[in-house]
Amino acid sequence: MSLADLHFFKMTREPSLDALCAVVAERHAQGLATILYAGGTDWMVEQEMRAPLHDEPPLVVDIGRMGELRGISLAGDSLRIGAGTTYLELERSAVVQARAPMLVRMAKDVGAVQIQARGTLGGNLATASPAADGVAALAAYDATIVVKSARGERRIAMADLQTGYKKSTRAADEIIVAVELAPPPEGSPWYWRKVGARRAQAISKVALAGVAVVENGTATRFGVGMVSVAPVTARMATTRALVLGKALAEITAEEIDHAVDQDVTPIDDVRSTGEYRSHVARALTRDLLRQLGARV
């Protein structure tokens, strides 16, 4: 499909986040959806797959240039990343490189450089897919999502965001503004491993994101997020509890495998099999903990 084949739609920009909230609220009240267009990397694909059955053109608002959704800043112990930040911007940000290097590593595995230049962290959160690499990375950092609507601003913890396959607690009129996370001390260990069907342009079969703070052989902070092993991004509660509960050197492979099996419910689909995903989920978790000091 070429761009010329795109179906008709109305595209606008809004001067400010408040103006955007007003437009979304007004349409929402009328039962109309508003498409927020940032990088378009999901939306463009959906257009190709969608037959042009409706005569009513949808409203698409280009938020790619909205200043209030952009920018990366560190204030005290909080790293704030605008929802409109692209993967390439993450990769190139000195503060992210220093304080949240796992995000940089993750970003390099998303699609390929073209997608990294267009796709945004906010877009990844908006689709709320369990296959989203960025969401797993944010889950590992136990990030918080800042959303805004005409009703005001609120924060959603990553743990409370996803409720089911591509379903979230974010209301239809709420716009993702930024993510906030408390970065571990500089130099803390982190882990990112993506298993896809090829080295680029691949949606994860499984991916594991992890961050930790280790003191005297014990993890005092441990966050993980796993991709494509459950209807939602897997936060691995059992595994987290296991790791935070005892000295890393005392954790056995059997305990890890058992915990992971509690935490994931992978399925067969077009990209892989449930059996393979279970195996990889265990193997990557062992690999992560091995790097932290577990003797497995």
Partner: peptide, 15 residues
């Protein structure tokens, strides 16, 4: 079930 370049996996230059 995989009639697309996204899920019929030909190698990229990186592969």
């Amino acid at each position: 079930t995989n009639p697309r370049m996204t899920n019929y996996i030909i190698p990229t230059s990186l592969d």
